[in-house]
Amino acid sequence: MMGDRTRRTFLLSASALAGAVACPTLARAGEKQQLIVDKARIVVESFLNDPQFAKMRVYVQNAYGVLVIPDLLKGGFFIGVEHGTGVLLGRDPQSGAWSQPAFFEIWGGSFGLQFGGQSSDAIFTIMNQGAIQKLLSARFQLGADASVAVGELGAGVGAGTTVQFGEDVYAFARNMGVYGGLALDGTYAKPRNDLNQAYYGQPLTAEQIVRQRIAPAVPGTEGLRQALSQF
């Protein structure tokens, strides 16, 4: 017969074994999302430290939100398809503080004589409240729901310079591959609430994260938010 003490030890051991089996699954639940956040931080830091993108600083400093898409992939024969997953962060226009990141997916297509492939780290600066509200509310098409322009390279604009932002969205990209530019027409962006839930452990919309700021603070986002604050 099993004594009470032995029985308790057995039950505790069984419970610990069950937890050991379950914990890796729980731990892996946010790994994919944290990898996206970490890649976004690396992209922001690389743009921040690149003299060619010095002009970009004033755009980030005045943006209402920034959409960071690491590894925006485009490739195909005759039909080019863009796709990437990244994060959107909102900037408080009063304090300059950045929100927790909300996950987004971007995709689009273009037709033409295209060969090879391209990978672009891309940052989109959202320059007014109307554009960011459209981006948060539904599927958002660049060029249709908001005017968009490709950000110019160079160091001609500094932090103290007054700039008239004529477009709703500006796109900055570092291209790698045989394509010579970033195609924007017909490009869509859409919130990924499933990734938000997996990362924050509760159902949250992009609106709740970026505008309402009710998402719990996650230590893994601090590096990305600090990098943006350095612009």
Rank of each mutant, 00 (worst) to 15 (best):
G143K: 06
S99H: 03
K190V: 15
G30Y: 15
L26D: 06
A18M: 10
R139I: 09
E152I: 08
A217H: 07
E82Q: 15
G220H: 12
F77A: 14
V60D: 00
Y64K: 09
D50H: 13
L88S: 07
V58F: 07
Y59P: 06
E31S: 11
L72K: 11
I42L: 12
G180M: 08
S99R: 02
D92K: 10
A20C: 13
A146Y: 04
A159R: 15
F103V: 10
R211A: 14
M56W: 07
S229K: 11
G112Q: 02
I123M: 13
V21F: 14
G154A: 09
A171K: 03
C23M: 11
E152D: 12
W107M: 10
S13H: 00
T25V: 14
R7M: 07
Q61V: 01
L135S: 05
N196V: 12
G30E: 15
Y179I: 14
T161Y: 06
G109A: 15
P70G: 06
K190P: 01
L67V: 09
A149P: 08
A97Y: 06
T6W: 00
P203S: 12
R192T: 07
V148H: 03
F111E: 13
Q33H: 09
C23Q: 02
R5C: 01
S137F: 12
T85C: 04
L17W: 00
L48E: 01
F77W: 10
F111S: 07
I126G: 00
A149H: 13
G180K: 15
A18T: 06
Q118C: 04
F47V: 03
N128R: 06
A173W: 09
L113P: 02
G220A: 15
T205P: 08
L184A: 09
T6P: 01
P101G: 09
Y64A: 00
A20K: 03
W107C: 02
